[in-house]
Amino acid sequence: MIEKQERLTAKKFWQELAKGIVITNPVFVLVLGLCPTLAVSNSLNNALGMSAGVIFVLLGSNIIISLLRKITPNLVRIPVFIVVIATFVTILSLVFEAYLPPLYESLGIYLPLIVVNCIILGRAEVFASKNSVTLSIADAFGVGFGFTIALIIVAFFRELLGTGGLEVFGKQLFSIPVLAESPMSIFIMPPGAFIVLGLLLAFFRMIGVLKHE
């Protein structure tokens, strides 16, 4: 009996995790958290750093908010969520500044802005405040990885077209000679973010529609 129940939660754990990545992908399906998606997807480095930050904050806030869900008064739940999220973001930015200064500098203003990332507040309100800690952890990883994958896809196209090559942690992965000589710089500038994200959203929408037919 106990074993069966444990297996059931394990199954649910993986279900929640997969759901966040594919079915309710925060960026491509729910179209949430577009500010960081547009702003820090200009290079793979920034995309990975931002994703790591968001996963850390999401995991921390989901765990704490889920733990407090039975004693949090409904009246002040949003301020409580914000305080919890802001605490984790501040911890993150202090740690980044102390131990990863180059990444801290390149993320710049977008690091403190994780506080108002609606994906994190959204998960707190919709999921963590109503579900057990284990499921909230699964949800945080699922949604976090979903966000990561989306950011990496956008950053891949932007960096490739905008600089003619790809670079991760200071190591050049590869570069296309013709593109590197005269890169389409518009793709690493803000308009490029809208163009790439728009085309990707259209593409994923098309897949969804074709599947239904």
Binding site: V76, V83, I91
Partner: peptide, 19 residues
């Protein structure tokens, strides 16, 4: 609710001072 929020803020401040 007032007491609860105050406690949360207090704990957050302590934690941040530590970090």
């Amino acid at each position: 609710p007032i007491v609860f929020l105050s406690i949360i803020v207090f704990v957050a401040v302590l934690l941040l001072m530590l970090v």
